[in-house]
Nucleic acid binder design. Sequence first.
DNA 1: GTATTATGACTGACTGGTCAGTCAATACAC
DNA 2: GTGTATTGACTGACCAGTCAGTCATAATAC
Lengths: 228, 228
Amino acid sequence: MAPTVRKTALKEGTQRDALPSVRGAAAGPRKRRSAAPEERRAAILDAALEEFTARGYEGARLDDVAKRAGVAKGTIYLYFADKEALFQDLVRSMVHPVLGTLEHLREVDIPARMLVEGMLNTFVREILGTRRKDIVRLIFTEGTRFPAIAEFYHREVIARVLAIVRPILKRAAERGELRDDSLARFPQLIIAPGLVAIMWDALFAKYEPLDVPEMIRAHVGILFGRGP
Amino acid sequence: MAPTVRKTALKEGTQRDALPSVRGAAAGPRKRRSAAPEERRAAILDAALEEFTARGYEGARLDDVAKRAGVAKGTIYLYFADKEALFQDLVRSMVHPVLGTLEHLREVDIPARMLVEGMLNTFVREILGTRRKDIVRLIFTEGTRFPAIAEFYHREVIARVLAIVRPILKRAAERGELRDDSLARFPQLIIAPGLVAIMWDALFAKYEPLDVPEMIRAHVGILFGRGP
DNA sequence: GTATTATGACTGACTGGTCAGTCAATACAC
DNA sequence: GTGTATTGACTGACCAGTCAGTCATAATAC
C-alpha cells in the first residue's frame, strides 16, 4: 500500500512521510461520513461475527474487524467499550431475534410430537441454517472463559425453553402420549442431536459428511415411532 | 527410563538443599537434576492440561505451565518443540489409553442393547468421570483452529468407533432387535446426550445442575424401552 | 577413597513481534 | 467559521521462543 510519498512533501523532503489522508483502502470507496450510526454499528457486528467465528475470541484481531467493517480501529471504540463488550453485544444481537419466536411456542397443549417436531424444525431452520449456529458454537467454545455469556444464554434461552416445554411434555406423558416422562425430565435429549450436528459440521464434515436433516428425522422416529 | 535419582548425596546437608525426590509441591523444593525425564514430561503435560483446560489454547501461558510443573520455561522446550506440539501431545496422551478399550468392543454380535449400554457406561466412566471430558471439550473448543487435532480425533477415535459399532447395529436391526436402522445409520444419536452432558457440566451446571447418569438412563429407556 | 574435569539438563533474563486500547490530528457537516 | 465523527500512528503490556550461563552429577585421574 505504501503510505507513499506525500504528494511530495516537497521541499522539505525531509519528513518521513506523515501520510495524512489518503487512507482509503485499496478500492477506496470514499467513506460516507457519519452515515447511519446504526448501520455502522451493524457493519462492525457483522465483521465481528466473521472474525470471532473464524478465529475465536482471543484469536480475533480488532484491526481485522475494523478493516472488514470498512472502518478505522478507533471507530469500534466509539460504538463498543472494549473487545469483550463487542463480543457480548454480538452474542446478544444474534440471540435476541429468536427470543420472540420462543414465546410463540407458548400455545399450550399442542400434542407432544408436534411440539418436538416444531422445536427441531425451528432449530434446523433458524440455527443450523443460519450464522446463528456459529454463535451457538462460540457460546460453547468461549463460554468457560466468559461465564457472563454462559449465564446470559442459560437465563435468556435455555431456561426459557425448558420452562415452556416441560409442562407440555409432562401433560403429554400423563395423557399417555409418550411412553414415559423421560422427555419431560430431560428435554435436553430432544436437542442433543442438534448440538452434535453443529459440532460435526464444524469439525468433521470435511472428513465424513453428515446428513443432518435425515439424522433429525431418524431421531424423531426413535422418539415417537415411525411415520406421523 | 528414569536416570533416577542419585542415591541421595545426603550427608552434606550443607547444600542449598538439593532436595532429591520431593520437589513437587508449592514450597520451593530444590530442583532435582535430571530427575526422571519421563516424570518431567508427565509433570509438564499435567500442568498443560490444567492451563489449557482453564484458559484455552491461546489463553494459556507457557510461563504458567512451567511454574505449575515446577520447571523453568526453557525446560518445556527440551521436551516439546513448541506450544502447538505440547497441545497436540497432550491430546494424544489423553486419547491413547482409550484407544485400547475400543478394540475391546470388537466382540461382534453382542445384543444391541448391551452394546449401547456398554458404550454409554464406558463414556460416563472413562470420559465424563475423568479429566478426559476436558480434553473432549478442548477438541470441540479448539478443533476449528487446529484442523490437525480434529482430523486426528476423527481418524483415531470417531471413525474407529463408528466402524466397530455400525455393523453390529445393522445386524441387530435386521434381526429385529431394533425398531429400525436409525441407530445403524446414525450412531451419533447414541452419544449425543454424552456431548450435551459435557457441555452442560462445563457451562450451565452451576445455574441448573443436571443428573447425568439419570439422563443417560432415560436415554437408554427411550432407545430400547423401559427395563432391561 | 578424594580431587579434578567434563557433561548436559536446567534456568530465566531477554528479544522480537503482536495487539488492545488511546488520542492528537483530520475531515466533514453545518 | 464551530462542533462532531472518524482516523490511524502510537504506546504499553504481554508472551512465545531463545540462548548464554549455571551447577549437580558423572567420568576420569590420582
